[in-house]
Design a binder for these strands. Sequence first.
DNA 1: TCAAAAGTGTTGGTGATACACCCATGG
DNA 2: CCATGGGTGTATCACCAACACTTTTGA
Lengths: 234, 234
Amino acid sequence: MKQISRFSHFGELSDKDYFRIALSVDCVIFGFEDDELKVLVIKCNIKEYKGMWSLLGDLVRPDEDLDSASYRILKDRTGLDDVYLEQVQTFGKVNRHPAGRVITTAYFSLVNIKDHQLKLSDNELHWHPVKEIAEMAFDHKNILDTCLERLREKIQDHPVVFNLLPKKFSLRELQSVYEAVLNCELDRRNFRKKFFMMDWLIDLNELEEDVPHRPGKLYKFNAAKFAKKTKKVS
Amino acid sequence: MKQISRFSHFGELSDKDYFRIALSVDCVIFGFEDDELKVLVIKCNIKEYKGMWSLLGDLVRPDEDLDSASYRILKDRTGLDDVYLEQVQTFGKVNRHPAGRVITTAYFSLVNIKDHQLKLSDNELHWHPVKEIAEMAFDHKNILDTCLERLREKIQDHPVVFNLLPKKFSLRELQSVYEAVLNCELDRRNFRKKFFMMDWLIDLNELEEDVPHRPGKLYKFNAAKFAKKTKKVS
DNA sequence: TCAAAAGTGTTGGTGATACACCCATGG
DNA sequence: CCATGGGTGTATCACCAACACTTTTGA
């Protein structure tokens, strides 16, 4: 690698020192199941945090874009590749990783749990209810909280939660997702009004089946309204 | 540095390869002068972008927090240290830097231009009107646009623009900042109403001086209302 | 016929916008 | 006295929150 002359203080340390920082990506992969918001976690196998839950992450390869690294992790773990993924923040405290200097960029992702099979053999990789996670390895609890906060802001204005649901869903299911993410109860009538007003839904003229009560109508996300703005900045 | 065993694909490349990525920080330092939003830029000295404007940045040192790196840059360039600084996004395309693999985390900062002296000898370091910047070195125009967008969102709900103004300011000045940042005109009566409603201002019972018209009242930011939530996550 | 959830409208409050005139000061 | 910007109030509108009863289905 050539010398990077733009940086003012390069002379104070040798070139090699500046490459002593590793860069990783951590994915907060959210799913929705049993009326709960869940996150994909794995048992940590480094000694300092033995047995604690950690997020899915990996080092960024020298020849892959940062965004690509997060897609790779998601693909490797869930088999999914057309998923919602958003960069949230980069965490870079000196001592955040016990094994050395690792700076990590956090992404959050929204997937439909039913759409894929996990390789459950791997270190107890599984979907864990977000509400039940009190602590995690490294600074991962902090990362999770930050991503959840971002998700909460995001869903107020942007039609992203559809990624957590199957193609066809009822309004009840949609509302449950919002309630799970926001951790609050919502008024049914206002909720329905809002969504029809937004024009985010297409009525499929189908009904739920196998429910022990009056079946609700099924809808799909009005994807056509949202031209794919692929803002690839990073 | 010890082996980092948490990462799944470590075996495919040698340890050394993973430390071939350098990490930098770039600061978008905003200021306000002559009713314009300005940004602190410097002439680029690497050959591929010779003579183009670039942001102020530097490599992150192995022993400093990511946040600290951005404070260091700001301090070095402006002499200021109690300033508003916020992480925005990390840019990590493989070829974003011609000299090698450099991933950069962007921060934006808000400072009062009058509060300090620049070392103007350095590569034409100066305050440049944001509106007049059409292109920049590297992906810095993209970084600038992203930070400006973030600033626009931020000022809608958060009292941050006070950082761009002197301690005492008139409502006209405050409004000018909003108009400069948002690049639009605002209604004076509604603007005043909103700010008094918010209770963000303290009336100093002083008047502007040396203005060729009726002097306006001076205010200061009601800092007491905003307990310092130092959310240090990165 | 009962339980459980679906479906449906109206009202009041709050915050945002649009808009025009008189006032104080310096030149 | 004139030019410049400072200072003020009201009407309208859109959006949000609160709230209760009837309907449909399966058991």
